[in-house]
Simulated scan of single mutants.
Amino acid sequence: MARLCRPVQLGEPAPEPVPVVGCDVCGALAEQRARAYAVGDLSKVTDCNVEMRRHAHTQAARA
């Protein structure tokens, strides 16, 4: 039987986002992520990482 598609090539996973110092939202997400790791809830870990990456930081929080 002929193969209809090429094999999938996956790259290296992205590193976990680092919370921005002084950002309360990032801090809360980092705490949630740590608790999720502790109980083995990798789906929640991923959710926290996505939220942290998408979170819009103010210039004051980045300084």
Rank of each mutant, 00 (worst) to 15 (best):
G40P: 06
R35W: 10
Q59V: 04
G27N: 11
R54P: 00
A2E: 11
P13K: 13
P13C: 04
C23N: 02
A56I: 00
A2F: 08
V45G: 02
M1G: 14
E51F: 07
R53P: 05
P7W: 06
E51N: 13
R62T: 06
Q9A: 14
A61E: 06
A2R: 13
M1R: 12
M1Q: 08
L42Q: 13
A56G: 00
Q9K: 14
V20H: 10
P13V: 11
L42G: 05
E51G: 07
S43E: 04
E12F: 14
P15F: 03
A2C: 11
H55A: 08
R35A: 03
R54A: 08
T58V: 12
A38W: 01
T58G: 12
Q9Y: 13
A36S: 02
V20L: 06
V25R: 10
R3S: 03
R35P: 02
D24L: 13
A61P: 04
Q32F: 10
A36I: 00
A34F: 01
V25Q: 05
C48P: 03
P13R: 15
M1S: 09
A60Y: 06
Q32L: 09
A30S: 04
A60F: 12
A61M: 02
D41A: 01
E51Y: 01
M52A: 10
K44M: 09
L42A: 12
Y37D: 13
G27V: 00
C5K: 15
M52F: 04
D47F: 13
V39M: 14
P15W: 05
V39D: 00
C5N: 13
E31R: 15
R53M: 14
G40V: 07
Q9H: 07
V18A: 07
R3F: 08
R33M: 06
G40A: 13
G22W: 01
C23W: 09
R33P: 08
A36P: 09
R6N: 15
C48S: 04
S43K: 14
